[in-house]
Design a protein around this nucleic acid. Structure first.
Length: 245
DNA sequence: AAACAGTCCAACCGCCTACCA
DNA sequence: TTGGTAGGCGGTTGGACTGTT
């Protein structure tokens, strides 16, 4: 019988999103919240399929997103989590507030993978690569597990070890980290951060959605790419009672 | 200055799973 | 129980950008 396509391909726009489309999507979601994605394009006046809208929102427009390169600590965390979880990017992303699975996946494929290979670590198994120049030149240890951890440590050191480089301290970088009694986000003990993230089920369920536009104050957590939204909020284009339903 | 190669990342595709009637 | 639907996920692609020759 075959699966129906997620959207009618005819009359559906594809490719990069325009600022106008972004505005429409954000306006709709701020007003109505996230409802049935399939209905979103119609209701928001977009010639996109619902899937495309969802992707655009979750990967780019969500206000709680951090932008920019992953910090060393985040990168190390991704490596640790990948060793445990494999290519379950969404699970890994869930442990990195403000990061998307797509972002992490891209970063893994373009940066981390190469670094690991360079260091003689198999990016799939996280075991030392056998008979590679890198492996032999980077480490002479005979114990396999020791080699693995040595290489990992070296990665950290080479990239400015996460033990020494503090987490970003500016507010925009930290804005989406949950409040905690312990100073997890201070960057003083990334080890603690890693442990805590591994154990805790973080609640990153779009807390911003619970706030109204009228109480959004100070810098929003996303960067200049969506600066226009600041104007949008400033001009009161969305009603204050509409986002928390 | 132009051509080419390499890199990056937003967006798409197709499959899987959960949910509901 | 079954079939249809929607949302979510991971893999892949393609175009823009950057660096090199």
């Amino acid at each position: 019988m075959g699966r129906q396509p997620c959207c009618d391909k005819q009359g559906v726009k594809r490719g990069p999103w325009t600022a106008e489309e972004d505005k429409k999507l954000i306006s709709f979601i701020l007003t109505h919240g996230r409802c049935c994605w399939r209905a979103v394009p119609k209701l928001a006046g977009l010639l996109r399929c619902g899937k495309s809208c969802r992707l655009r929102w979750t990967n780019y427009l969500r206000p709680d997103l951090k932008r920019g390169l992953l910090s060393t600590a985040e990168e190390q965390l991704v490596i640790d989590l990948h060793a445990k979880l494999g290519n379950r990017w969404s699970k890994i992303a869930a442990k990195l507030p403000g990061r998307t699975d797509n972002e992490i996946k891209n970063h893994w494929n373009t940066h981390i993978k190469k670094k690991l290979i360079k260091l003689g670590i198999d990016p799939v198994t996280h075991e030392p690569l056998a008979n590679t120049k890198a492996a032999s030149s980077q480490s002479t240890a005979t114990d396999e597990s020791a080699k693995s951890s040595n290489a990992k440590d070296e990665l950290s050191l080479k990239e400015g070890s996460h033990r020494e480089v503090p987490l970003p301290t500016d507010s925009s970088e930290q804005s989406s980290w949950p409040d905690s009694g312990t100073n997890i986000c201070s960057g003083e003990d990334p080890e603690l951060l890693v442990n805590w993230l591994s154990e805790a089920d973080l609640c990153v369920e779009e807390p911003w959605l619970n706030s109204t536009s009228s109480n959004i104050e100070g810098p929003l957590p996303w960067d200049g790419a969506t600066d226009w939204l600041l104007d949008y909020l400033d001009f009161g284009m969305c009603s204050s009672n509409s986002v928390d339903d």
